[in-house]
Design a binder for these strands. Structure first.
Lengths: 161, 161
DNA sequence: CTTGACCTTACCATTATGGGAAGCTCCATA
DNA sequence: TATGGAGCTTCCCATAATGGTAAGGTCAAG
């Protein structure tokens, strides 16, 4: 199988197959005298494995570890499970973050008239002097006092539902 | 305010402030004779606006558009709302994708014994010959017949957990 | 004056992927 | 057989947003 066929058979583009080879995620396949890469069924299988891992949100490095576990016929399923659950937690953390963003924006949008007047709580929130934003730690109090922002009011619309 | 102070005051790193300037997201501030950037309260405010937009998941380009709307005192709040809701939809699409991944993995992990035996439905699934994966369309059926994958067994561990 | 914190620019790295150019190969068909 | 086009090769560039580092200038305090 040429790289093009391998690509359609695995769902990984030819570009990516070459890339995976270049970073050592897969072994360099044999070549024809002309230099064409030739893939075995085994290798296609491996590519499909990688594709599936990527589809499930594993990074390439994580896919590398999964491949290693897959190849190691004596791995303990516990190791795989632990690895998978770690990833699930990562995914859920990310989901939580996105949901927080979505929720906040939805709230703001809800209070926005959405007509042709310029007043807009969404922009107003974005322009808020601060509050609810990650606490920016001041390092060693060097900051000239003239620096304090004269902003005051703050969380006019603050997102805590 | 020097860039360092601007950074702590806005929550945007000095590195990023310079970057935003380089891509024209913010205007170049005035400089001291020594070449140090000096920021006004106005500019800090703008940086905070950007920071907040980024925190809500807007891309830099989106932040640019939001800034434009913010500066345009005659914008219609409807425009802002539309923009925000579009972003909410994007966020929710992403959330849905992540949830699908998480769900799938959770299921697999559930059926995995997680002991020291090697049998693992998670790896078995990753190694599945295909199914439920995005249908890879074959382009113009050029594929040499010798190309058909002789893969058969494939799922040595398939889900018969 | 020295020292240390801070500033400047410039360059490199990251993650995963796509795009394109220049040039060779393979094969079917005219 | 010659040709054309699809497909292969390598190499380089770009993306998004950020971090890191190096080499060197500056500012303020001791």
């Amino acid at each position: 199988m040429n790289i093009g066929q391998a690509a359609t058979a695995s769902g990984v583009t030819a570009k990516m197959i070459r890339y995976y080879e270049s970073i050592g995620l897969i072994e360099p396949p044999i070549r024809t005298k002309a230099g064409y890469r030739v893939y075995t069924a085994e290798e296609i299988h491996e590519l499909r494995f990688i594709k599936r891992a990527r589809t499930l949100g594993f990074s390439i490095e994580e896919a590398r570890e999964l491949l290693a576990l897959w190849r190691d016929k004596s791995r303990a399923s516990a190791d795989v499970k632990t690895f998978a659950m770690k990833h699930v937690r990562d995914l859920e953390t990310k989901i939580g973050e996105l949901q927080a963003m979505s929720r906040t924006l939805r709230h703001l949008a809800q209070t926005c008239h959405g007509d042709d007047r310029p007043e807009c709580p969404i922009l107003a929130d974005l322009a808020l002097p601060d509050a609810r934003q990650p606490p920016y730690e001041k390092k060693h109090g060097k900051a000239k006092t003239h620096a304090d922002c004269t902003c005051d009011e703050a969380d006019t619309f603050s997102s805590r539902h």
